[in-house]
Design a protein around this nucleic acid. Structure first.
Ligand SMILES: [Mg+2]
Length: 621
DNA sequence: AACTGGCGGGG
DNA sequence: GTGTACGCCAGTT
C-alpha cells in the first residue's frame, strides 16, 4: 500500500465474513502513545496531513523472562504458580523455554506471559524467591513503552493501523506496523498564567489566577482576564470571573485543537496551579482531544501533566536538558535569559512584586502586565518552536514519544535506545538496579581522573582540545562493552587498556560498540548529505537537528556507563574509556610540545595549549 | 576561609 | 522510574 498525500484513508475491505464490521487500513505519524491502567487499553495517537486519529489496542500483554539453573524443570514449577490477591487468582497464561541473548551469548530462559500487565510485578516477586532462579529480565519496562518496542514502532515515524472505525478511533484488529512517513506539520499553542500574589508566593487555595495568555503558531494571540479595567489592547478578552476565564481557556484550546500544548515551567507551576484553581472552582480541565481531563503524572521532583491526544511540552525541561549537556550555560534559566540567549531578542519584564498593585489599581501598570503576560506565552512558543526539531529527532532515534523525551536525561535516552536495539537482537533487558546494588555501585571508587598541574599565570591565545568528543569512537574502536571487558575468552590475548589491569575482547563485537557505531555512521551520513545543501534551506535545518541529536546520543554513552542507576552500568568500561582518552591526550601533549606549542593545562577530557604565535590551524594539525 | 545544605524554574 | 548535575548562595563554624 502506498501512502497518499494527506489522510491515507483506505476504502473498507471486507473480510471473509460479510457480516463483519468494515475494516479500515490507515497510516499516520505516531506522535503519542499511552497505556490506561483502568481500561487496560493501549492508545496510539497519529497524524496524517491535517487529520488526527487514534488507535486502540485492548489485548497487549507484555512478557518477561526468567533465567534459572534448569530451565525445563523451572518451567514445570512456574506454570503451576497461583497467587491469590484481592480475591483474584494470579497465574501465568503461558510459560515456555526460549533462546534469548545476554550480552551476545545465547541463553535458555523461561518466557512468562501474565494474564494482565499489572500481574507482572506480583509474579516476578514470587518467582524471585524460588530456588534455582538466577535473574529476571524485561519486567520493569512500562507497558506503553513495551508496546511500542515490541511492535517495532518509532514515534515521529509512520504506523499502519488496521481495524474497525469507532468515531475517529480505530479499534485495532492486528498489531500496528511500522512504515516510513514524513512528519506532518504539528500545530502549537503556548500558554502562561499570572497569579495574584499578595503574600509573595501565590497560595493556590486563595490567590486567583489573574490572567491566561495564549499564543499560537498560526499567529493567534489572546490574553484572558476577569478584571474590567479600560484598555485598548485588542488581544484582551475580559470574562466575568476566574471560573469563566478558565472555562474559556479550555474552550479555546479545544476549538483551536493544537497538537502541541506548551509553556515555560508548566510542569512545575502553571499546570499544577491551574489544576488546583480548577478543582476549587469546579471547572473540568478537559483539554484532551477526546474530551478527557488532564492527568498529573508524578515523576522525579515535579509532576508532568499529560493531555490526551496532545504533546504537552514544558520548554523549561528542554532548556534544562540543554544545560546539563553543556549546550547552554547561564547562571539563571529564566524565560527572559533563555529567550535572549537562544533567540537574541529582548522581551518585556515585569517585577512580580508589582503584580498586586497592577491588579488592584489598573492603569498603565495593568496594561504592561497584559503585554508582559502575552510576551511570556509568545517567548515560550518561539523557544519551543526553535527546539522542537531537535527533540523530535531525539524521539525518533531512541524510539520514545516526544512527551517523555523532552523530560528525559541523556542517560535515560541512551538506555531506551539500548532497550529498543536489544529487542531487535533478542537481548534480555537487565532490570534497573535495586537500592542495594545502587548503594554498592556508589561505593565503588574510580581510578583517579587525570589532571595536569596547571602552569600558573594569565594565558592568552589559548587553544582548547576537548577529548570528550573522542569517547564514542573510543568505545567503538576499542570494543568497550560490559560483555567484552575482561572477557574470559581473551585473557592474556585481548586488547590491553592503558594503565589499567583490563583488556577488551578481540573475538566478539560488543553490543554497545555496535549501537554506538550505528549512531556515528548515521551522523556521518547526515553530515555528508548536508554538504550539498543550502544552509538556509528547510532540509538543511532538519538534517542539522538530526546530526545534533545523534551527536548528543553518541556522547551520552560514556556518562551512562558510569551512572550507578543505569541498566548497562559498567565501572570498568567507563574507566577504560577515560584511560584510552588520557592515553590520546598524553600523546597529543607530546606531539604539541614537539611542534613548539606549550601545554598549560590538561585534565581528563581537555587540553589547553598556548599558540606561541602560531595559528589555530597549525595547532589543529 | 572553609564548610554544608538547598536550590534552580514559575509567581 | 518521587531516575540528574553542579554551580551558586546563604547560613553556619
Ligand atoms: Mg508570565
Amino acid at each position: 500500500m502506498k501512502a497518499s498525500a494527506g489522510f491515507s484513508f483506505q476504502p473498507p475491505r471486507h473480510r471473509f465474513n460479510p457480516a463483519a464490521a468494515d475494516i479500515y487500513l490507515m497510516r499516520g505519524v505516531l506522535f503519542d502513545a499511552e497505556y490506561v491502567d483502568e481500561t487496560r487499553e493501549m492508545r496510539l495517537w497519529l497524524k496524517s496531513g491535517e487529520r488526527v486519529f487514534s488507535a486502540v489496542e485492548g489485548s497487549f500483554i507484555p512478557r518477561f523472562f526468567v533465567e534459572g539453573e534448569d530451565p525445563e524443570k523451572l518451567a514445570r514449577v512456574v506454570e503451576k504458580i497461583e497467587i491469590r490477591e484481592n480475591g483474584r487468582i494470579i497465574r501465568p497464561v503461558s510459560v515456555r523455554t526460549v533462546e534469548m541473548k545476554r550480552l551476545g551469548n545465547t541463553v535458555k530462559v523461561l518466557e512468562v506471559v501474565p494474564e494482565q500487565p499489572k500481574d507482572i510485578q506480583t509474579l516476578r516477586r514470587f518467582i524471585r524467591e524460588m530456588p534455582g532462579v538466577r535473574q529476571i529480565y524485561n519486567y520493569d519496562i512500562p507497558v506503553s513503552k513495551h508496546y511500542l518496542i515490541s511492535c517495532g514502532l518509532t514515534p515521529m515515524d509512520g504506523a499502519e493501523v488496521e481495524g474497525e472505525m469507532r468515531g475517529s478511533e480505530v479499534i485495532l484488529s492486528a498489531p500496528p506496523k511500522p512504515v516510513r512517513l514524513a512528519v506532518p506539520k504539528l500545530s502549537m499553542i503556548s500558554f502562561d498564567i499570572e497569579v495574584y500574589n499578595p503574600a509573595g508566593s501565590p497560595r493556590h487555595e486563595k490567590d486567583p489566577i489573574m490572567m491566561i495568555g495564549l499564543a499560537g503558531d498560526d499567529g493567534f494571540r489572546r490574553v484572558l482576564t476577569w478584571r474590567r479595567f479600560p484598555t485598548k489592547l485588542d488581544f484582551v478578552e475580559v470574562l466575568e470571573s476566574e471560573k469563566k476565564m478558565i472555562e474559556r481557556f479550555v474552550e479555546i484550546v479545544r476549538e483551536r485543537d493544537p497538537d502541541i500544548l506548551l509553556g515555560y515551567n508548566t510542569d512545575f507551576f502553571d499546570f499544577p496551579y491551574l489544576r488546583e484553581r480548577a478543582r476549587i472552582l469546579k471547572v473540568k480541565l478537559a483539554l484532551g482531544r477526546d474530551g478527557s481531563e488532564i492527568v498529573a503524572r508524578r515523576r522525579k521532583f515535579a509532576t508532568a501533566t499529560r493531555v490526551r491526544g496532545r504533546i504537552h511540552i514544558d520548554v523549561f525541561a528542554m532548556v534544562d536538558f540543554l544545560a546539563t549537556i553543556g549546550s547552554i550555560r547561564l547562571v539563571h534559566y529564566t524565560l527572559e535569559n533563555v529567550y535572549k540567549y537562544l533567540l537574541g531578542k529582548d522581551k518585556p519584564d515585569f517585577e512580580f512584586t508589582k503584580f498586586v498593585e497592577a491588579w488592584e489599581k489598573g492603569g498603565e501598570a495593568w496594561e504592561r502586565l497584559l503585554v508582559y503576560n502575552l510576551s511570556d506565552a509568545v517567548a515560550a512558543l518561539e523557544l519551543g518552536h526553535e527546539l522542537l526539531s531537535l527533540f523530535l529527532e531525539l524521539s525518533k532515534i531512541i524510539g520514545q514519544v516526544p512527551f517523555d523525551v523532552v523530560r528525559m536525561t541523556p542517560g535515560q535516552m541512551v538506555e531506551w535506545l539500548l532497550i529498543a536495539e536489544g529487542f531487535r537482537r533478542d537481548e534480555l533487558i537487565p532490570a534497573r538496579p535495586v537500592a542495594e546494588t545502587y548503594e554498592e555501585r556508589l561505593e565503588e571508587t574510580y581510578t583517579g581522573a587525570y589532571v595536569m598541574e596547571p602552569v600558573r599565570g594569565l594565558h592568552e591565545n589559548i587553544v582548547v582540545f576537548d577529548f570528550r568528543s573522542l569517547y564514542p569512537s573510543i568505545i567503538v574502536t576499542h570494543n568497550i562493552d560490559p560483555s567484552t571487558i575482561n572477557c574470559s575468552c581473551c585473557a592474556g590475548t585481548g586488547e590491553r587498556v592503558p594503565d589499567l589491569p583490563y583488556h577488551t575482547c578481540r573475538r566478539r563485537r560488543g553490543f554497545l560498540p555496535e549501537v554506538v557505531e550505528k549512531i556515528l555512521k548515521a551522523r556521518f551520513d547526515v553530515k555528508k548529505r548536508m554538504k550539498d545543501l543550502d544552509r538556509g534551506s528547510h532540509e538543511y535545518k532538519q538534517l542539522n537537528a538530526k546530526q545534533w541529536a545523534l551527536k548528543i546520543i553518541a556522547n551520552s554513552f560514556y556518562g551512562m556507563l558510569g551512572y550507578p542507576k543505569a541498566r548497562w552500568y559498567c565501572k570498568e568500561c567507563a574507566e577504560s574509556v577515560t584511560s584510552f582518552g588520557r592515553h590520546y591526550i598524553k600523546w597529543t601533549i607530546r606531539m604539541a610540545e614537539e611542534a613548539g606549542f606549550r601545554v598549560v593545562y590538561s585534565d581528563t577530557d581537555s587540553l589547553h595549549c598556548l599558540l606561541n604565535g602560531k595559528s589555530r590551524n597549525e595547532a589543529l594539525k
